[in-house]
Simulated assay, not measured.
Amino acid sequence: MQLSETVTFGGSSLDRAAEMRGDAPKLKALTDSDASRAVLFWRGKPLVAASDDGLTLAKLSMRHPILTGLADPVFLGRESEGTGYFAYELRGWVPEGLDEAALQEFLDQSEQTHPALTEGQHFAELRAVMTRVDARDAELAATGKAILGWHATHGFCAACGVKSDIFMAGWQRICPVCKTHHFPRTDPVVIMLVTRGNSVLLGRSPHWPDGMYSLLAGFIEPGETMEAAVRREVYEEAGIRIGHVRYLASQPWAFPSSLMLGCTGEALTHEITLDPVELEDALWITREELMEVFAGRRTDILPARKGAIAQFLLSNWLADRGE
């Protein structure tokens, strides 16, 4: 495995068994298997469980009572020994004493428990637990969150407006009238490790917690290459011209449906000109200064959150590690 594949949500190599999605008999046999397991979500938050090692993604029996009456699940994949994984969305339940404001915070730290579940099982924001579960659990959680989120927001045919039906074990929707097939959406985003000599460019958005800085990022536009997007985004947000661009690593980011494409870009200019709509601040920071940040010895600048590809790219730059 390459270093680039060890990023959070990557490197698990889950067998998604796409050939089974349209095979109803085989899929039913897997659904009915005692070995198969359900991964449950509530408002996009996966169900996790405390374990001796810290935290795991809860995997329920396909016959668990809480699944009764829920919509058909999405088939996520299978293990080599035949265990199938299916993602369910728990709808219509409102936890007692729910704090709606907590759900809207930058990083939702709230946890919800359901009376039908066992002690230690709770729903948690994926960003808050993504570094506490193993690679397979992280991939299952990110995949389930992304595909269920797509179904929640794309329930009608974009061609004729009729309510569409779930198809291919959840990996397509099909219009019953015009027969148009709709596929899950993934939005490509470039995130840039922009360097000039011994310094790297960091920026912060206005809505971020005080002191938090990260790498610049932006969506790739239609008809645009990844390299062109890097150069355009950095110039638009910080006024820096970029020369050579190189791809480093990628990370699926199910918040809600992005694929982060980590790149490095060589800055040709130094002076920063901010776009105040996109950035509240941007600065150059040396390798030695960034090491102080990562060591927690500075209070004015906080590092990118653990588990995000920005933190992965920066930590490997500090260690002078390549792909």
Rank of each mutant, 00 (worst) to 15 (best):
F9Y: 15
S13W: 13
L14F: 05
L14K: 01
R16Q: 14
R21N: 03
R21Q: 00
D23K: 09
A24Q: 12
P25Q: 07
P25V: 05
K28W: 10
T31M: 15
A35R: 14
S36I: 01
R37N: 01
F41P: 04
K45Y: 06
P46A: 05
L47N: 05
V48A: 01
D53L: 11
G54N: 04
T56C: 12
A58E: 13
V74W: 00
F75I: 00
L76Y: 03
G77P: 00
E79H: 05
G82K: 07
G84K: 04
Y85M: 01
F86K: 06
R91L: 14
W93G: 08
P95F: 06
E96G: 05
L98H: 11
A102M: 06
L103G: 00
F106Y: 14
F106C: 05
Q109S: 11
E111Y: 02
Q112L: 09
H114P: 03
H114A: 01
T118S: 14
H122M: 04
F123M: 02
E125L: 08
V129M: 04
M130C: 13
M130D: 10
T131F: 04
D134C: 12
A135W: 05
E139C: 04
K145P: 00
A146R: 13
G149I: 05
G149C: 09
W150Y: 09
W150E: 03
H154Y: 05
H154K: 07
F156E: 14
A158L: 15
A159P: 01
A159L: 14
I166A: 11
M168Y: 11
Q172T: 01
I174V: 14
V177T: 12
V177L: 11
K179N: 11
H181Y: 14
H182M: 13
F183T: 09
T186W: 15
P188H: 07
V189E: 03
M192Q: 11
L193F: 03
V194M: 07
T195I: 07
R196T: 03
N198E: 15
N198T: 14
N198I: 09
V200C: 07
G203A: 13
W208H: 09
P209V: 06
Y213R: 07
L216M: 13
A217R: 10
G218K: 10
P222F: 10
P222H: 12
P222S: 12
G223W: 08
E224V: 08
M226A: 15
R232H: 10
Y235G: 00
A238Q: 06
I240C: 02
I242Y: 05
G243W: 04
A249Y: 05
S250C: 02
A254L: 00
F255H: 11
P256I: 04
P256E: 12
S257C: 13
S257K: 14
C263Y: 02
T264G: 11
T269Y: 04
H270R: 15
H270S: 15
E271S: 11
D281Q: 05
R287G: 15
A295P: 08
D300H: 09
L302T: 08
A304D: 03
R305Y: 07
R305I: 02
A308S: 15
A310H: 08
A319N: 12
R321F: 13
R321L: 15
G322Q: 15
E323A: 13
E323N: 12
E323R: 10
